[in-house]
Amino acid sequence: MVIEDPKTNKLIEVEKLPDGTYKVTIYDKKTGEKKTITMSKKDLEKLLKAL
């Protein structure tokens, strides 16, 4: 799943891993910076609600 946040000009890509956690990659379209973090479903839901 890919989500675009027009306010921050970032793309957020979410991928479910076999162990039940989620790999979240955040791309900054302005700088080209890429950050990848792994989080639980509960933390991911908090992140998505904040957008």
Results as ranks from 00 to 15, higher is better:
residue 1 M to P: 09
residue 1 M to T: 05
residue 2 V to D: 07
residue 2 V to N: 03
residue 3 I to K: 00
residue 3 I to C: 04
residue 3 I to Q: 03
residue 4 E to H: 04
residue 5 D to R: 00
residue 5 D to P: 02
residue 5 D to E: 02
residue 6 P to Q: 13
residue 6 P to F: 07
residue 6 P to V: 09
residue 6 P to S: 04
residue 7 K to D: 14
residue 7 K to M: 11
residue 7 K to C: 07
residue 8 T to P: 07
residue 8 T to W: 05
residue 9 N to V: 10
residue 9 N to G: 12
residue 9 N to Q: 06
residue 9 N to L: 08
residue 10 K to E: 13
residue 11 L to R: 13
residue 11 L to F: 03
residue 11 L to S: 04
residue 11 L to C: 03
residue 12 I to C: 01
residue 14 V to E: 00
residue 14 V to A: 11
residue 15 E to H: 07
residue 15 E to T: 13
residue 16 K to H: 12
residue 16 K to N: 13
residue 16 K to V: 14
residue 16 K to S: 11
residue 16 K to P: 14
residue 16 K to L: 08
residue 16 K to D: 09
residue 16 K to C: 15
residue 16 K to M: 13
residue 17 L to M: 13
residue 17 L to C: 04
residue 17 L to Q: 07
residue 18 P to S: 12
residue 18 P to C: 15
residue 19 D to R: 03
residue 20 G to N: 14
residue 20 G to L: 09
residue 21 T to G: 14
residue 21 T to C: 15
residue 21 T to M: 11
residue 21 T to S: 14
residue 21 T to L: 11
residue 22 Y to C: 07
residue 23 K to G: 06
residue 23 K to I: 04
residue 24 V to Y: 01
residue 24 V to I: 04
residue 25 T to W: 07
residue 25 T to Y: 08
residue 26 I to S: 12
residue 26 I to A: 08
residue 26 I to F: 09
residue 27 Y to H: 13
residue 27 Y to R: 02
residue 27 Y to C: 02
residue 27 Y to I: 15
residue 28 D to G: 01
residue 28 D to F: 01
residue 28 D to Q: 01
residue 29 K to E: 12
residue 29 K to P: 04
residue 29 K to C: 11
residue 29 K to N: 12
residue 29 K to I: 07
residue 30 K to Y: 10
residue 30 K to R: 10
residue 30 K to N: 11
residue 30 K to V: 11
residue 31 T to H: 11
residue 32 G to C: 13
residue 32 G to A: 03
residue 33 E to I: 10
residue 33 E to G: 08
residue 33 E to H: 14
residue 33 E to R: 05
residue 33 E to Y: 04
residue 33 E to W: 04
residue 34 K to P: 01
residue 35 K to A: 12
residue 36 T to N: 04
residue 37 I to V: 08
residue 37 I to F: 06
residue 38 T to R: 06
residue 38 T to Y: 11
residue 38 T to S: 14
residue 39 M to H: 01
residue 39 M to P: 03
residue 39 M to S: 10
residue 40 S to M: 03
residue 40 S to G: 06
residue 40 S to V: 14
residue 40 S to L: 15
residue 40 S to D: 13
residue 41 K to V: 08
residue 41 K to N: 15
residue 41 K to R: 14
residue 41 K to F: 03
residue 41 K to A: 13
residue 42 K to S: 12
residue 42 K to D: 15
residue 43 D to L: 01
residue 44 L to N: 00
residue 44 L to E: 00
residue 45 E to H: 06
residue 45 E to L: 02
residue 46 K to R: 06
residue 46 K to I: 15
residue 46 K to W: 06
residue 46 K to D: 15
residue 47 L to R: 00
residue 47 L to S: 01
residue 48 L to M: 05
residue 48 L to W: 03
residue 48 L to G: 00
residue 49 K to M: 11
residue 49 K to R: 04
residue 50 A to L: 04
residue 50 A to Y: 10
residue 50 A to R: 06
residue 51 L to D: 09
residue 51 L to I: 03
residue 51 L to Y: 01
residue 51 L to A: 13
residue 51 L to R: 00
